[in-house]
Design a protein around this nucleic acid. Structure first.
Lengths: 352, 352
DNA sequence: CCTGTTCGTCGAAGCGCTTCGACCAAGCGC
DNA sequence: GCGCTTGGTCGAAGCGCTTCGACGAACAGG
């Protein structure tokens, strides 16, 4: 393996000049730069990351801590990871995933203190995430994906659940729907303090009340079967329901199957709006779902930029960012079945 | 940040003694070892990974290359990752995920050459995977998860599709089924050279023929809707079908929904055996699926051990390992509906 | 023509660790 | 009591890079 010293000899310059030519830290004449580049190419030089890291005290690695073993890695996370990796690369860094469980915060901290990464992105943050305290106390640079109960100025990026649920409700109310049910994540996610479950539930309730409507929410297990049962349950409780907001992809499949089974037309008799969805979900059902797509890519980009600004020690940390979901029209949402047909089909305003 | 030199001073020994006490490379008296340990604790010493890596020319990092952006990270992969991470840790290494796309082989190679990892696990290997050639030519230690078309002695671990499909067919035939259809992964996976699609298809066909039966296979898109259509298609083609082998989890949900929709009892009138499944899938349907669970954890363990044996330069590389899936009884498989009830319900042999 | 800058380059001092050879004091057999 | 091994320790030489101070040359202004 060729070293920088070899390159220097071959190019007839000093070691440090090669270093400057490579990093651009100091100006180097064009002629010298070319000779160095040629020498590097001829020798097949590859810089040594460890040596660079040791000398500069920066690994140029950002770690994404993700409990892959506990949750899988769904489409939204994939988008996030992809965008984060690209953004890191554009800024001269590498994004790596550390598959640690939520209770392995100490190991994450130690790895950063050992210099294996310059900072971490913490995914799937729960309301009372123990990892956050550990990292904060150790002085490890980090950015949360999601938010603890009390964000307290800590750097974070997250889906704007309040806004997303409000827009979902507004959209449906705008189509004349009055009885709208929300099918949330499972009770189990709530038990473990999974924040989106709570934020979306509160957001939905607030949005409904702001229209003078009564929110109906069900927490549903992540399975098609549970979705079917949840639908049955909702219809038993509130037969007049004309629209569903769902934040549970797998259960949504079950809901659609059960609706079809019961001969309830979508969207003629029941609108289904899936929020915070992964890409590609819309087309996995018939009719294609109307969705509000989670901003995975944008969150990934922002999270990395936020972390980099901390790591480089420059600029303001930009404490927190909230991104809403974007509505993507499908064919599962339509006007309420009892909406006045005269007042314009798809855009009928809510009736007072 | 305390250095090893600080520890040495505090313990009243030399730098090298601290190093030996830490690594165990040379023997150190118990008394000295205790003093060193005490000094490290008092100073809150954390070794510097970069310095260690530079001096030893080993990063103690194993990279798992996974195209997270293209595929998600399902349950099987999660099991794999979890076991691989644990095995790596048990052997003094760290497992990290590199979210590179399949066409980024050069970057993977470069990172290893730069010393960011000692070796790589390549997941989702396709029949003609370009990454394999790149890594082989660069002399980078790697182990494939999956197999290229021609393994050629390269280190790999994989699901034994031939054995799994044979056992699946044997099991069903043993229950009296004669007309068995196989619902495979999608045509799209085949187009991109996804090896399991081919190996399972061939294995199923061979197993059927060995019983003198005609294989019926359908490639099905990964969606519930596609599953429903595939079932309809199979029943139209071969109305006497009494059992399905599926290797497509999402489609399987659709199949079950459609069976229920048509009033076809599972398993009374149709057995469904899902193979190469993720954990937890069985319980996501009603009745719980009978499955053959993919050996994710075992593959993860073996893959890491294989890679470590290459990296440490010791022991034989143990070229390849194939692991079958284990049958996990559920309630979706039963005797064929036209099997002679007299000859013993569940264990009736195939009729000639 | 002299001083003050700026540009490009160099040498050397680390970064924090591993590892090799050497050394010393015991402990051993004979 | 001799040389020999052995266990425990030390000093020093790197590992391959970044970065700082210094220095000569080219060039500007006065």
């Amino acid at each position: 393996m060729a070293t920088m010293q070899d390159v220097a000899r071959r190019a007839g310059v000093s070691l440090s000049t090669v270093s400057y030519a490579l990093s651009g830290t100091r100006s180097v004449s064009a002629a010298t730069r070319d000779r160095v580049a040629a020498a590097m190419a001829e020798l097949g030089y590859t810089p040594n990351a460890m040596a660079r890291g040791l000398a500069s005290r920066r690994s140029r690695v950002l770690a994404l801590v993700y409990p892959a073993a506990e949750r899988g890695l769904g489409g939204t996370v994939a988008e996030f990871v992809s965008a984060a990796a690209d953004t890191a690369r554009e800024n001269g860094h590498h994004l790596v995933l550390w598959p640690f469980r939520t209770n392995q915060a100490d190991e994450v901290r130690d790895l950063v203190l050992q210099g294996m990464a310059d900072g971490v992105l913490v995914m799937e943050v729960t309301l009372d995430d123990p990892r956050v305290a550990t990292l904060r106390d150790a002085g490890v640079p980090f950015t949360m994906i999601g938010r603890t109960r009390d964000v307290g100025g800590l750097p974070s990026v997250d889906v704007d659940f309040e806004r997303t649920t409000r827009e979902a409700v507004d959209h449906l109310v705008g189509l004349g729907h009055r009885r709208i049910a929300f099918l949330n994540h499972s009770e189990a996610t709530a038990t473990e303090g999974y924040a989106p479950t709570f934020r979306a539930e509160e957001g939905f309730a607030a949005a409904m009340r702001s229209h003078g409507l009564e929110p109906l929410t069900r927490r549903v297990d992540e399975s098609p079967q549970a979705g079917r049962e949840a639908l049955a349950d909702v219809l038993a409780d509130q037969p007049g329901t004309t629209a569903l907001v769902t934040m549970n992809e797998i259960a949504t499949f079950g809901v659609l199957a059960e609706l079809q089974h019961r001969g309830v037309g979508v969207p003629e008799q029941m609108s289904v709006l899936a929020i915070v969805t992964s890409p590609g979900v819309a087309d996995m059902s018939n009719p294609p779902l109307t969705t509000m797509h989670a901003p995975g890519a944008e969150l990934g980009r922002l999270a990395v930029l936020n972390l980099l600004s901390q790591v480089s020690g420059e600029g303001s940390p930009a404490a927190g960012a909230l991104i809403g979901c974007t509505l993507e029209p499908g064919q599962s949402v339509g006007p309420a079945r009892d909406a006045a047909p005269a007042s314009g089909a798809a855009q009928s305003p809510p009736r007072p």
